[in-house]
Amino acid sequence: MKIDLSGKTALVTGSTAGIGFATAKGLALAGARVILNGRKADSVSKAADALRAAVPGAQVGTFTGDLATPEAVDALLVQQPSVDVLVNNLGIFGPQDFFETPDSEWTRLFETNVMSGVRLSRAYAPGMVQRKWGRIVFVSSESGLNIPADMIHYGFSKTAQLAVSRGLAKRLAGTGVTVNAVLPGPTLSEGVEAMLAEEVKRTGKPVGEVAAEFVKAHRSSSIIQRAATVDEVANMIVYACSPQASATTGAALRVDGGVVDTIA
């Protein structure tokens, strides 16, 4: 299968590292013009340089700003009023006990993980409808189905993304615009590596081995018994953004290594 997104513009939020950067690279390899996003100018610049090095000849745009805020979204729309592919990847996480999680933290995760995608989808979908083609992908998580006891506020935000993506897919029925959610499981991104850094230092084991042990201990239903790579997750996202995925919409596409124990 050859995915060709030549002539299309793709925005990937939160794309200076991890799943976001891997997705941006995959879309660029498919020929799309890719807009990278991050909160810090230096990280955005480094990511743009890395993408150009990884994909010679890639068309790369950038936007620096925290898209969890309406002000940054407004500024982005001035700079980039139209996109064909929107990957709502921006997200934050972190374990915190339910009884120690203040209102402000619930609001912070909701604004970042949910409302950033809501605002951008509301802004960009009408243009896609007018052009009779578009792709919107929300990067959710298996935690949206399998709510973690130590990150209930995170699981809540990821479930909310599933509700928005499914509902928006119905709202855009018959327009040529598809809306899907991709649900990674434990993934060896820079964020997860940072979370495991203390255990890596303590044991002297490679980070991949420590990640596999974490999966076996905390996601024991995993069938692959290891963390996925960011490229493995990006492959599913890129497919959902492709012309070939025209009959896939309103779906929750799991790249969780089989963590969610269901046949549906």
Rank of each mutant, 00 (worst) to 15 (best):
M1C: 03
K2P: 05
D4L: 15
G7R: 05
K8A: 14
K8P: 08
A10M: 02
L11P: 00
V12Y: 01
T13E: 09
G14W: 04
G14V: 01
S15N: 02
T16W: 05
A17R: 14
A17E: 13
F21Y: 12
F21T: 07
A22P: 06
A24Y: 00
G26A: 10
G26K: 05
G26T: 09
A28V: 01
L29R: 14
A30R: 01
G31V: 04
G31W: 06
R33K: 11
R33S: 13
V34M: 04
G38V: 02
G38Y: 10
R39N: 10
D42R: 08
D42M: 02
V44W: 06
A47L: 02
A50L: 08
L51Y: 00
A53F: 01
V55S: 00
F63H: 04
F63W: 01
D66C: 10
L67R: 00
L67I: 04
A68I: 02
A68L: 06
E71S: 14
V78E: 15
Q79N: 04
P81I: 02
S82L: 07
D84V: 09
V85W: 03
N88Y: 01
L90Y: 04
G91M: 10
G94R: 02
P95W: 14
Q96H: 06
Q96A: 11
F98I: 15
F99N: 12
D103A: 12
R108M: 09
L109G: 07
F110W: 08
T112Q: 08
M115C: 09
L120A: 07
S121V: 08
R122Q: 15
A123Q: 12
P126C: 07
G127C: 07
G127I: 04
R135D: 11
I136L: 08
I136S: 07
V137M: 09
V137Q: 06
G144Y: 08
L145W: 12
P148T: 08
A149Q: 13
F156T: 15
K158V: 03
A160M: 10
L162Y: 01
A163I: 00
V164P: 11
S165V: 00
S165F: 00
G174P: 14
T178M: 07
N180E: 07
P184M: 03
P184I: 02
P186D: 13
P186E: 14
T187V: 02
E190A: 12
G191A: 15
G191R: 15
V192C: 05
E193P: 04
M195V: 15
A197P: 02
A197L: 09
E199C: 05
R202A: 14
R202N: 06
T203H: 11
V207N: 14
E209A: 12
V210W: 10
V210M: 10
V210T: 05
V215P: 00
V215K: 04
K216P: 03
A217C: 05
A217Q: 15
H218C: 02
S221H: 09
S221F: 04
A227R: 08
D231W: 02
E232V: 02
V233D: 11
N235L: 11
M236N: 10
I237D: 08
A240C: 14
P243S: 05
A245N: 12
A247N: 11
A247Q: 13
T248R: 03
T249I: 12
G250I: 04
A251V: 12
A252D: 14
V255T: 12
G257E: 09
V260D: 06
D261H: 11
A264V: 11
